[in-house]
Amino acid sequence: MERPGRHRLRLGRVSEPGRLYLLTSVTRERVPVFEDFHLARSVIAQLRLTEQEEAARSLAWVVMPDHIHWLIELKAVTLSVLMRRFKSRSSCALYKTGKLEGRLWQAGYHDRALRREEDVQAIARYIVCNPLRAGLVQRLGDYPHWDAVWL
């Protein structure tokens, strides 16, 4: 069932191949599903699969306990197709582990198209430093669920 006003979130959403986007998706009710190492790695495998399929090029990402941040260069699909596939596949992968019941993701996702003049590496650093700011680790190297093409 659609929540009132949810369609307005999609107004003006543009999917432009070659454009950089920062995507964020949150687990249902912010349940910290990805505190489980193996579940987090299953989701990471799905992020990597989108790159293998040439749907998007991953520039940086972090899997936090209850959400993901993903900086991409969009390739051959729209944002909605990319996220629908990612969410569906990651949900299926986690269901197969037997550790997940019910929906994994909240409906929708947040996206922000980066402007050409923005410092992409600074945004990537901000993304991968989320575990530090959240107090999950003292050093970034101690957090296993992130990557960036520059590091």
Rank of each mutant, 00 (worst) to 15 (best):
K75G: 05
R125D: 14
E101F: 11
R84K: 15
Q106I: 10
N130S: 15
L79T: 06
V62D: 01
L104S: 06
S90V: 12
W146K: 03
V62N: 01
M1D: 11
H69V: 07
L47I: 15
E54W: 07
L39P: 04
R30P: 01
A107L: 02
A122P: 01
V43M: 14
E101Y: 10
R125A: 10
R84M: 08
L82I: 07
R84Y: 12
G98H: 12
R115T: 09
R125H: 12
R89K: 14
R8A: 14
C92A: 15
T27A: 00
A56R: 06
G108E: 03
Q52P: 00
G12H: 10
R133Y: 05
A45Y: 03
F37K: 12
L79R: 02
L132E: 02
S25T: 14
I123R: 00
P131S: 09
R85N: 13
F37L: 10
V120Q: 01
V62I: 11
A76R: 15
P32W: 09
A60F: 06
W105L: 09
A148H: 04
P144Q: 06
Y95P: 03
E73Y: 02
L151P: 01
P32H: 07
A124V: 10
T24A: 11
M64S: 03
R112L: 09
L114D: 04
A40V: 08
W61S: 00
V43Q: 01
F37T: 14
R139G: 01
H69G: 07
I44A: 05
L136N: 05
T24P: 01
W146H: 13
L71G: 01
E101W: 10
S80E: 14
P4D: 07
R13S: 07
V26R: 13
A55M: 14
Q106K: 11
L104I: 10
V128G: 01
L104P: 02
L132P: 04
R125C: 03
S25A: 15
I44K: 03
R85V: 12
G108F: 07
T24L: 04
S90H: 10
E53Y: 05
A148W: 13
K87V: 13
L11R: 15
L136S: 06
A40C: 07
V62T: 08
F37C: 02
P144L: 08
R13Q: 15
R8P: 00
